[in-house]
């Protein structure tokens, strides 16, 4: 590799070369120092205009009583919008629902994805067909997917209850049962995302060296034990990534429960049984028109996530130090 241009030559040339080297070194330093800012600048310019400004407005609004009917009229209320959340049964209910729907959708989704990836990892006829099919639900919009699931989960004429009826079960009230509705909403999420996650796991599985399996096989490990002791540990970073992404998605879950509720909009069911935080925020802001309170909910959600993230980080650091 050419690491310099210092071929032998006359003194003037050497001086030139030295000068050039100095200039290049300076340019290099300048480059190293400032170019990072140039790379992040486009993102942060847009972020400042379309991300930060709304964010700061939201923070400011959360300290006021302000209505959508007149967003310019702000009445200072300090932290009242936050303090009232503590006693707000609907906020806690939404938080609880967000957690349970989050678990109901994320855990099965990732487990199924892992299983499907494992199956796809074998030598398989038509593997490309299965992979493409796995991805098609992902291409469907939340709106289109929810529309069709509302019909499928209909209490009186839906296909799901018809099938359950053949087995002598039901009819289940998928819209207004407590657990049934959470399950139904989760199903939409699971349906849309499982295939995508399966492909990500599959990619990671393919990069696991065969020797690991061979030595495990030599130790007499069964297929299942190989899966548990070789595959899963090797996938840990990937699994972590998908958990992070799914968790963020789950905390912001909004479109599915909104559209699943048909004409009743943002209530999240007659007992608010599937009203998520995102939906409660929407109800406060866009139905009840209280922008200040909605802003406070948004920031509370944000703080909860930051807390979760920090906790996860601390646990991780602790484990790394002790383990």
């Amino acid at each position: 590799m050419a690491s310099g241009t210092t071929t032998a030559g006359g003194a003037p040339l050497r001086q030139d070369a030295a000068g050039e080297r100095r200039w290049r070194a300076r340019r290099h330093r300048w480059d190293v120092r400032w170019s990072p800012y140039a790379y992040i600048a486009p993102f942060f310019v847009f972020f400042a205009a379309f991300g930060l400004v709304p964010l700061l407005y939201t923070a400011w609004a959360s300290l006021h009583r302000v209505e959508l009917t007149a967003p310019a009229d702000m009445e200072w209320v300090g932290l009242r919008n936050f303090s009232r959340l503590v006693a707000d049964e609907f906020f806690w209910n939404a938080l609880k629902n967000t957690v349970t729907i989050g678990l109901l959708s994320t855990v099965p989704q990732l487990l199924i994805a892992l299983g499907v990836a494992h199956l796809l990892h074998g030598r398989l006829r038509g593997s490309m067909f299965f992979r493409v099919v796995a991805l098609t639900p992902y291409a469907t919009s939340v709106a289109a997917a929810t529309l069709v699931f509302v019909l499928l989960f209909g209490r009186d004429y839906g296909m799901v209850n018809w099938a359950l009826g053949l087995a002598g079960i039901g009819p289940v009230n998928w819209q207004n049962g407590a657990w049934a509705s959470q399950f139904a909403v989760s199903t939409i999420v699971i349906w849309r995302w499982t295939g995508y996650n399966a492909l990500i796991y599959l990619a990671a599985m393919q990069s696991i060296p065969d020797e690991l399996y061979e030595s495990a096989a030599l130790d007499g490990a069964s297929r299942w034990r190989q899966f548990v002791h070789v595959t899963v540990p090797s996938l840990r970073p990937t699994i972590l990534f998908t958990i992070v992404v799914s968790t963020i998605g789950a905390t912001q879950l909004f479109g599915e429960p909104l559209l699943f509720n048909g004409s009743a909009g943002a209530t999240g069911g007659s007992d608010h049984q599937f009203q998520t935080l995102g939906l409660y925020l929407y109800e406060q802001g866009w139905v009840n028109l209280h922008l200040g309170r909605a802003s406070a909910i948004a920031w509370a959600m944000f703080l909860i996530l930051v807390l979760l993230g920090t906790a996860a980080g601390l646990i991780n650091a602790y484990r790394r130090r002790t383990g």
Partner: peptide, 18 residues
């Protein structure tokens, strides 16, 4: 990373004003 966690529904009002 923080902005990843901000629920998008809320930015709508200030964004529309902008």
């Amino acid at each position: 990373i923080g902005t990843m966690m901000v629920p998008p529904q809320l930015s709508v009002v200030p964004l529309f004003m902008l």
